[in-house]
Each structure stands twice: as structure tokens, then as C-alpha cells.
Design a binder for these strands. Structure first.
Lengths: 205, 205
DNA sequence: CACAATTATGACGTGGCGTCAATTTTTTAC
DNA sequence: GTAAAAAATTGACGCCACGTCATAATTGTG
């Protein structure tokens, strides 16, 4: 026949597997946004799909694992952006600014997807979500490289990476509370603070 | 009778009420530490006390509410410490160091219970309890005052307060992962970073 | 002491959890 | 193309936590 051989590369088995997984993830995203992560149940998620309850457990072991898969998804999209920011940067300063800018842009988009004004949404990202681990590893690597090249002082790289994550999280959340969120200003603040401390942070007049 | 009139100020009713509430909170603290926030159930908590399951609901509506009460409690104890650090400090530098040191000491004590890693002791979704907001305001006031007196540059005080909180949270968590946790070193790092950025952070040799 | 008010108790109905034997769907072998 | 094998789906099942509520116990009051 002619019309049967157009769907993607693989066999049917693999295709429906991917489709089911995607359906569950999409349903979970909607459910988490609508009723909140805590209140959501595996049943709430699976009910939003065509699948039976038992099928859920062929794909994920728990609600937590779905959340992590969603976060992984975010990290997978975000990490190359961060990596590019590092590779394109001509200095450590430029890298930091680019990294913060990338992160702030990312959370603005991530929060824009789900409808409803930004201010009404609860802050949601977990501390050790893969997104954050990606930030940690990138900043850590960038810093290690900068130190090796003598472009940055020999500080505690672990603490510094953690500090950057904390700044990104909290300043990012604060930025989202303002309307419209100014990504560039927030990035300038964060990078300036890290690079030169209070003296390096932009003045406010 | 003689021996009856020694227990605290109030009537029996109020006393057992406070005792029960305290017992639930203590049990919850232990349970969260031991098995992690997500895995813990209301039954796990109440089973650690002498009380019946229904009694739990005379005091809290849910596991989430217990967590918020614990967080509120922590913030209520911490806020005066922070205030004292501000009033005793002779310079902005000293204030920052004192504040970070106070916070790091606080969380070391607060996490003295053995059990699951710190990240698992809290909910995935961030909670902004009124008392947490109060801590933000205290930090914010300290920064505003410093800026008004010309002891700190005129930066975005909201962002700066958020950044300090983020640094405190993440560097604090990193500190707890090390053994033994070095409060003074962590405080020196955090304060140095905020005051002078990378150049101000302690060198690591 | 009697009575009212308050709090504690634990059994109960509801519903989610994760499992698993049975069934359906897809692949493989002939 | 068909039959057997492999894989995935299904939904009912037993279990347990949830939050409630009638009842019992305790405490305050006159």
C-alpha cells in the first residue's frame, strides 16, 4: 500500500510508546499548572489521557518521576543555550552576563506558556531540579576555566556556583513579579553583583 | 492542695492544647527529617505522638500546613537574631557578615536532626509564609537603611535583598553538605561576595 | 455535684496507590 | 497469510491514607 509508510522512522511499537509518554507528560504539565503540583495525583494525570491507570506505571514510577522528566525536558532545552553563552563569550564577564540573561529569558518564556498573568503564579521550580544542576555545572565549569586562565581569583568554586544559582533563583522570581519583566536589567544586576559586589551592581537613581 | 498549682500560667485546657500542638510539630520535624517531606504522611506524623488520628485535624488541616507552621516557627525565632545583628553592627560590612553568620549558625542547629538529605526535607514547591516574608522585609530594611546612610551604593534594594536571600539559601545548603560545616568560612564567603564580588570573596589555596 | 463546653477518639466511607493476571496489539518465524 | 511469541494495555483488586463525624472523655462553670 501507499499511505501506510509515512509515519516517522520506527515501528509501531516504538511510535506509540513515544506518543504515550508524550501524552502523559503533556497531561502532567496541564494538571500541575491547573491544580498545583502538591494537589495533583497520578490519577488526575492519567485521566487526562486516553490511557488506563495501569499504563501510567509502564512509563513512570510516580508523580515525582513525571515532574523530573518535565524538568529534564526543560534542562535539555536550556543547557545548550547556556553552553552557547559560554562558548560565544569573549570574557568571563561577558559569559556571566550571558548566562544570567539566558536563564532569565528562559524562565520568562517558561512561565508565559501556561496562561494567566505571571504575578498570580506560584514560584515553582525545585532547588535541585536538573535545570539548576545544569546551571550549576555550567557556572562551575566556566569558573574553573576562568580560574585556570587566571581570569578570576581562586575562590571556592562550589560556593560560588551555589551563590549564582541562589541569585538566579531569587532575582529571577523577583523579576517575574514585576511587569513587564526586564530580563536585561536583571541580568545586569546579577552579573554585576557577582563580578564586583555592591560596587559592581548597577546604580539605581 | 499543694502540688497542683505549679504548671505554667494557664488552665489545663490551654496547656494540653499547646503541648499537643508542640508534640505534633516535633513529630513532624522528625518525620520530615527521617523519611523526607514527600514520603511523609499525616499518619506517620500522628503515629509518632500519643494522639489519635482525628486529633491531628483539630490542630492542622494538612501536612502542608504543618510544614508552614514549622517554617513560620523558624522565621519567628530567626527574625530577632537578624534584627540584633543589624543593631549591633558598627558598619555595613559588619552587618552583612553578622547576618550571614547568624543565618548559617541557625540552619546548622535547625538541621541537627539526622536523616534524609536536606533537599528532601522540604516540599518541591516553594512556600512563602508570612514569616518568611517578614524575614525578607527585615533584610530589606537593613539594606535600605545602609543605602540611606550612604554606607552602601544605591542599588535595587529589592533585587539585592532577594540576591542575599538566595545566596544565603544556596551557600547555606552547600555548607550543610560538608562535614563539619564551617559557619565562619561560609559567612566570610557570602559577605565577601556581596560586598566586593569575586574580588572580595576569600581566596582558596 | 450536675451541667455545659470543649476536645480526643477511632471507625467509617471515599478514593488514590501500585500490582498483576488476563487481554489485546504488534512483531517474528515459518 | 497464519500461527506462535513478545510486548504493551487494561481495569479490577487489596491496601492504606485521607478527612469526617458521632461518641466518649475531659475540663470549666454555677
Amino acid at each position: 500500500m501507499s499511505e501506510a509508510a509515512l509515519a516517522e522512522p520506527a515501528g509501531k511499537r516504538e511510535r506509540t510508546k513515544l506518543a504515550n509518554r508524550a501524552a502523559i507528560l503533556a497531561a502532567a504539565r496541564a494538571v500541575f499548572a491547573q491544580m498545583g503540583y502538591e494537589a495533583a495525583s497520578v490519577r488526575d494525570i492519567i485521566r487526562r489521557t486516553e490511557l488506563a491507570s495501569g499504563t501510567f506505571y509502564n512509563y513512570f514510577r510516580s508523580k515525582e518521576e513525571v515532574f523530573e522528566a518535565l524538568a529534564d525536558d526543560g534542562a535539555r532545552r536550556f543547557k545548550p543555550v547556556l553552553r552557547a553563552a559560554r562558548e560565544n563569550a569573549k570574557s568571563f564577564t561577558e559569559y556571566l552576563k550571558g548566562a544570567f540573561h539566558a536563564y532569565f529569558s528562559f524562565i520568562v518564556e517558561d512561565n508565559a506558556l501556561e496562561g494567566r498573568p505571571i504575578e498570580e503564579r506560584r514560584p515553582h521550580v525545585r532547588v535541585d531540579t536538573p535545570e539548576m544542576i545544569a546551571v550549576y555545572q555550567e557556572v562551575r565549569q566556566g569558573l574553573d576555566a576562568a580560574i585556570a586562565k587566571g581570569m578570576a581569583p581562586k575562590v571556592d568554586a562550589d560556593y560560588l556556583a551555589c551563590a549564582c544559582i541562589g541569585i538566579a533563583q531569587e532575582v529571577g522570581a523577583a523579576m517575574l513579579r514585576r511587569s513587564p519583566p526586564d530580563v536585561t536589567a536583571a541580568a545586569a544586576f546579577a552579573a554585576g553583583l557577582v563580578l564586583k559586589g555592591l560596587e559592581g551592581a548597577p546604580r539605581k537613581d
